[in-house]
């Protein structure tokens, strides 16, 4: 029964995660990725035997084979794997949060270019120069042009004030 519940929970987490990733809005994207990594962590947990109240450390006295055959113990390896995976997904999630908030600051909107384009009823996000006027004030389409000017040497000032870069690009 426990295993069935665990499997169901993994399924729910994966479904919700995928749904959130596909939904509009970048915060939902971050939350969806978080749920997906939790789902996979639980799935990893289920790859060992599910035990209750059994220790992961067994006394090394006597014959190892008899101990393994007679005693109940929790498999420590998936737990170690999950710990590693949690640390990694935490780091990556932190990075994505920074990226998303940065995009918020740079473009003035938490929507991706494709989503902005769909708001404007244009199929092609690259067609943005024609329609930027229709966007709310301060919102720019980041994909509209390549940042050739920002690739140059003199980006020192620009880097510290991304909003200036955005303005420079609109002009």
């Amino acid at each position: 029964m426990t295993a069935v519940m665990l499997a169901a929970l993994v399924g729910v987490l994966f479904t919700t995660g995928v749904w959130l990733i596909l939904a509009r809005g970048q915060i939902k994207l971050v939350l969806g990725l978080g749920l997906l990594s939790h789902g996979v962590n639980l799935a990893l947990f289920g790859t060992s035997r599910l035990t209750r109240g059994a220790p992961a450390v067994i006394p090394h006295e006597g014959d190892l084979a008899t101990i393994l055959a007679t005693q109940t113990f929790a498999d420590p390896l998936p737990q170690a794997l999950i710990l590693t995976a949690i640390v990694i997904s935490f780091g990556v999630t932190a990075f994505i949060v920074v990226l998303v908030s940065r995009r918020d600051a740079v473009t003035g909107s938490d929507l991706a270019p494709g989503e902005l384009a769909s708001l404007l009823n244009t199929a092609d996000p690259f067609a943005a120069p024609m329609v930027t006027d229709a966007l709310p004030a301060g919102v720019i389409m980041p994909d509209a042009v390549d940042d050739y000017d920002l690739l140059q040497y003199e980006i020192d000032e620009v880097y510290d004030r991304p909003q200036d870069a955005a303005e420079a690009k609109i002009q």
């Binding site: 995009r103 042009v145 920002l150 991304p162």
Partner: peptide
């Protein structure tokens, strides 16, 4: 470098 298109691509 943090240019707008870079952040977009990075996401």
């Amino acid at each position: 470098g943090g240019t707008p298109s870079q952040i977009n691509g990075a996401i």
